[in-house]
Simulated assay, not measured.
Amino acid sequence: MFTMHKILETYIPIAEVIAKTFGQDCEVVVHDLTVPQNSVVYTVNNHVTGRKVGQSFDHLITEVLLSQNFTNDFSANYYFQTEDGRMIKSSTLLIRDQEKKVMGALCINVDTTAITENINWLSKMIPANPNQFPKPVPKQENLSEMEHIREIADELIDKIIGDKPLEKLRRDEKVEMIRFMEEKGVFLIRGTIDKVAEKLNISKVTVYSYIEEIKGKSSSSEKVV
C-alpha cells in the first residue's frame, strides 16, 4: 500500500483531464520521487506502456534532466520505444514541494502508432518526402543549469540511500542501491560518483568496482540463452 503525498494528490484531476482530452492512446503517470525505487503512485490509461503503481521511473535522467530541451522544470516531446516496438511521444514536468525541492513528476506518454499509420496511409497519396526525427543535439553545459541538475540528482541519491544507519548497511544492500542508480542513469550526471561515495562512506574506487561488478553480472546474464 502506497500513501500519496497531499501535493501529488492535487495532480490526479490534472492527470485525468489530460487523459480524457487526448483519449485512450494517452497515458499519464504521477511519480513520487521521494521514493525513487517505487516512484509510480498514480496512472491513467496505463495500457500504453504498462506502468504500474509501485514501479520506478525510467527516463527521468536520460531523457529529461540531461535533455537539450530540459528547461523550466520540464522536457517536452521526447521519444522512446516500448519493448514491442511502438514509438511513444513523451513529456515530463517536475513537481516541487513548498520548499521548492523536487518531490515528484507528471509524465504524459502518447502512443503514436495510430498517428504513424495514418501518416503512412496519407504519404501514399502524395509524392514521397520522408520525414525523419531530428538528430539529438548534444546538450551544451551551462554552469547554473548543471548545478540545478546536480541538486536534483543529489536529492534523488539521498532518497535512494535513505536514512538507514550506514553501519547497518550490508555490502549487498550497497551494491543494490548502486545497481539501481546505474540502471537509471544517475552516474551520467557529473559529480554523482563522489556524492554516492560520500553518502555510503566508501571510496570512489569502491563505487567504481561495484559498478564494474554490476556490469559484469549483467553481461553474463545477457549471454545466457
Rank of each mutant, 00 (worst) to 15 (best):
Q55E: 14
F70D: 04
E167M: 10
N120H: 11
S221H: 10
Q81L: 10
L169E: 07
P136I: 04
D163P: 00
T112Y: 07
E145M: 15
L188W: 10
D25N: 11
A128N: 09
D97K: 01
L8H: 05
H47F: 09
F187M: 03
S221P: 01
K135Q: 10
S56D: 12
R179Q: 14
M125L: 15
I178Q: 03
F57E: 02
K159G: 01
G162H: 05
E155C: 05
Y78H: 10
M177I: 08
F57S: 03
Y79Q: 10
D73E: 08
D111G: 05
E183D: 14
L188H: 13
S91P: 07
P134G: 04
I178A: 03
K215Y: 03
C26N: 09
F2Y: 07
N131W: 00
L60R: 06
P36K: 01
E182I: 03
N118L: 15
K215F: 00
A128K: 09
L94G: 01
T3S: 15
T82K: 07
F2I: 12
N142T: 13
R171K: 12
L156G: 03
G185T: 07
W121Q: 15
N142E: 15
R170M: 04
D111Q: 04
G162K: 05
R51V: 02
K174N: 12
S39A: 12
G216Y: 10
F133G: 08
V102I: 11
H5Y: 02
E155S: 11
K52N: 14
E182D: 13
N129F: 00
K139E: 11
D73M: 03
Q24D: 12
N45F: 07
D73W: 06
N120L: 13
I211F: 01
D154V: 05
K52G: 07
F2E: 08
N120Y: 10
L94Q: 01
T82L: 06
D163F: 10
C26F: 06
V102N: 00
S218W: 12
V30F: 04
I214K: 04
D32T: 04
D158M: 10
V17N: 12
N77L: 11
V207L: 02
S123Y: 10
C107R: 01
D97R: 00
T192G: 08
S203M: 05
E63T: 06
N120C: 09
D194T: 13
E16Q: 15
I61Y: 04
V186L: 13
I178T: 06
Y42K: 05
Q132T: 08
F70E: 04
I160P: 00
E213C: 07
I7D: 06
N120R: 13
V40C: 03
S75A: 14
K139W: 08
A128P: 01
K101Q: 14
K217D: 05
V196C: 05
T71D: 13
K100S: 13
D97S: 06
V29D: 02
L200R: 05
K215T: 03
I214S: 02
P127V: 09
N38A: 13
F187E: 01
P13T: 04
L143H: 12
E9I: 13
I61V: 15
Q81F: 11
E147A: 15
L106Y: 04
F187G: 01
D58G: 00
S218D: 11
I211H: 01
F22T: 03
L94K: 02
T71A: 13
N72Q: 11
V196M: 03
P138S: 10
D154N: 13
L122G: 08
K124D: 05
D73R: 06
G162A: 05
Q37E: 14
F22H: 07
L200A: 04
A128G: 02
